[in-house]
Design a protein around this nucleic acid. Structure first.
Length: 467
RNA sequence: GGAGAGGUGGCGGAGCGGUUGAACGCGCCGGUUUCGAAAACCGGUAUACCUCGCAAGGGGUAUCGGGGGUUCGAAUCCCCCCCUCUCCGCCA
């Protein structure tokens, strides 16, 4: 959520931000509703103050008169009754007015709060303008010594690459048929070394973050309340991407949602808390199963392990002080972790600066990491793929947008002891089985065997190859 | 699934219709004392929104799980919802 006060001060900033993100939102409508709401609340508060005054003045009198009533009779009694009635009339009139204003508020507030959730965070000024992913800008690329991304796989390695589908099949690493039989399209079953490799990659990434980078390991719920989804910014806009656990229809008190990323659980941890500044930054990592409906992606990446409904992911989040420089520094650092990891896995990659149109609601800045997948992309004259980069990571810088929704604040010396909204960032560490695509394709040998990256071998009982 | 108990400030725990944002204790912060510390003593210690002020700060309203109701007045009474806990059953 954006800062409403800031919106009032500089609405153009948000109009422009929404435009750059191709989000259709009527900022003036929001401002108008906010204006009306504040006027009504102000009026109400004044009336309430008046009411309180009256209470203090007449309350005692009423008490006394009631006492005298008990003993009184006849003319005295009716005189007292009249006096009581007049004392009660004024507060009653005020109450009616206040309640009337309440009605006015109920006409405004639902729309206002709904709209507020839909105002996107404006992109940072140094984010390139663009309409969508085609306008993203490459920042840098890396490939292991001896592998030149300017040349084809065959030129580099001396034989044409098999696709990950072919390699999976060849080594019996996955059973798509039975996956689909049980759970429908985009489902799969990792088998044998496929499952081992998957677990090894996750475990390596998890250990890397906790042991080497000092992040705090956490488990998180992957079935959460709607509150968490709204708080982390995935709802309302991404509602159709999440699986719904419809408990209400069977009498349960709350519907629940399956999370599409560990970010939801990690960020939800400190919802509605005021943290001590000395506790920051919080650096958390988790490995969790992620569920995505992939609504609207019908027909896209239907084959293989690229776009699936369920996968596992090691995720990193950082919650830090409300300081742009600090946020920016963490963003770079979190990207650095990923680069180190990919380099150790020997996977060529590039960093993409996402343009304004590709940022999503929440981000001020987002940098994607794409790994080189030789079996992906357009085909050559022989019907063989030319290779392409495929997204494997996404590093977001959200400033206070997410924490404001989550009501996650901190205080300390730098805030003068007053609560301030935390900043948050998140980035993939490793998502599998998608990461198996470049691992298999990049480390395949001419005979189709796979050389296991050294880093993963300790998690595979020391095995050096598959096949 | 069956049966109970309960949700009050950072925590513990009072209050059960009237200057109660809320006793008391703990914690925390500041001060006195001390060579220093502990102890003791004194003072302070919520959040949100609105408003006045350059600021320090002042004023107002709301908040005792959430919503609604009764009442001149509700943390206190009534209704609905949510949540947590305990016991039994089932179970990874």
């Amino acid at each position: 959520m954006i800062d409403l006060k800031h919106l009032r001060e500089d609405p153009e900033h948000y109009r422009k931000g929404a435009r750059l993100k191709n989000v259709d939102i009527d900022i003036d409508r929001v401002l108008g509703l906010d204006e009306r709401r504040r006027a009504i609340v102000h009026q109400q508060e004044q009336l309430r103050a008046e009411q309180k005054q009256l209470e203090k003045q007449s309350g005692q009198q009423i008490g006394q008169l009631m006492g005298r009533m008990k003993a009184a009779s006849g003319d005295e009694r009716s005189a007292l009754e009249r006096e009581l009635a007049s004392l009660r009339a004024a507060p009653a009139a005020l109450k009616e007015k206040i309640q009337g204003l309440d009605v006015d508020l109920t006409e405004i507030e639902p729309e206002l709060s709904a709209l507020l959730l839909e105002i996107p965070q404006p992109p940072d000024a140094d984010v390139p303008e663009g309409a969508g992913s085609d306008d993203n800008v490459e920042i840098r690329r890396w490939s292991p010594p001896g592998y030149d991304l300017g040349r084809s796989f065959e030129q580099n390695r001396g034989f044409p690459p098999r696709t990950h589908l072919e390699l999976l099949e060849m080594h019996g690493l996955v059973d798509f048929e039975r996956g689909v039989k049980m759970a429908g399209s985009r489902s799969y079953v990792l088998t044998g070394d496929g499952m081992r490799l998957h677990q090894a990659a996750l475990r390596y990434a998890f250990d890397f973050m906790t042991s080497e980078n000092g992040f705090t390991p956490m488990s998180v719920p992957v079935i959460v309340r709607e509150e968490c989804m709204v708080g982390t910014g995935f709802f309302p806009s991404g509602r159709d991407q999440a699986y719904l656990v419809d408990e209400q229809s069977r009498g349960g008190s709350n519907d629940l949602f399956l999370t599409g990323t560990g970010e939801v659980g990690l960020m939800g941890l400190h919802q509605n808390e005021i943290l001590d500044e000395s506790a920051l930054p919080l650096t958390y990592t988790t490995v969790s199963t992620c569920f995505r409906r992939e609504a609207g992606a019908a027909g896209k990446d239907t084959a293989g392990l690229y776009r699936i409904h369920q996968f596992d992911k090691v995720e990193q989040v950082v919650i830090c002080r409300a300081d742009e420089q600090e946020s920016r520094a963490w963003h770079q650092k979190m990207l650095g972790f990923v680069e180190t990891l990919l380099q150790r896995l020997g996977l060529p990659y590039r960093l993409l600066q996402c343009c304004t149109g590709d940022l999503g609601m929440k981000n001020a800045d987002m940098i994607d990491v794409e790994c080189w997948m030789p079996g992906r992309g357009e085909e050559d004259a022989n019907g063989r793929p030319l290779g392409a980069f495929g997204e494997t990571h996404s590093a977001s810088r959200l400033y206070g947008y997410q924490c404001r929704r989550l009501n996650m604040r901190y205080r300390g010396d730098s805030t003068d002891g007053k609560p301030a909204v935390c900043h948050s960032l998140n980035n993939t560490v490793l998502a599998s089985p998608r990461i198996l695509i470049p691992i298999l394709e990049m480390h395949q040998n001419k005979d189709g065997s796979i050389t296991i990256p050294e880093a993963l071998r300790p998690h595979l009982g020391g095995a050096e190859r598959i096949g």
